[in-house]
Amino acid sequence: MSESNPFVAAWLLIASGDPTLAGIVALSLRVTLSALAISLVIGLPCGAFLAMSRFPGRGLLVIGCNALMGLPPVVAGLAIYLLLSRSGPLGPLGLLFTPSAMVMAQTVLILPIVLSLSRQVVEDLWEEYEEQLRSLGCSGARAIPTLLWDGRFSLITAILAGFGRASAEVGAVLIVGGNIAGHTRTITTAIALETAKGELALALGLGIILLGLTLILNGGAYLMGQYARRSAGQPW
């Protein structure tokens, strides 16, 4: 990097469409969006189920999920590492230091968020709707799609929170991915590495991109929410 001002260098790098940079960004998005998709597929219905059911131990489960929202990423990374390491139970799959391992680690991080927030949203809705839905024969598992759809505006928050946590996270993907150039290097792990090496321009460029992605996603979700809310006449 010949440019002395790292900010200028960062913009030049982004503008040049550097393939290494593009690869890192693409991998980051792929890993985070995969983890988010898996978390939504599991977390939304499970959260809804938890909201509507009453069974012994439910309280503990709710507390557990809430607590897991604050799980330190390095601990999640370590757990997945142990699971996937050669002598671990899933060792034979050979997934350690692959993007799949990073998806797993990030799923562990954002699933509790999606689960807890959707449980909260659905619990409030169910309290309001219960008699009407039961009257219509819409109870148990049949009520879950209805409740998730009617909670759609609030659930966007859960999705954004999950994306935010996964995309900002560095500890877990570093441990299970190994930050291998061209293979498991993500925006956050690259920033950590380049900063340590003193390559501030690259680090800063990546930081700007990450910030930009987050802003675009949040802005898009906000506008979509506003539009949908207006067109659906949301009183809340």
Binding site: E131, Q132, S135, D150, A232, Q234
Partner: peptide, 13 residues
């Protein structure tokens, strides 16, 4: 069927 004292409608059209 039953219609309640305060109608309960879904967040839809």
């Amino acid at each position: 069927a039953m219609v309640f004292q305060r109608p309960i409608l879904l967040r839809r059209s």
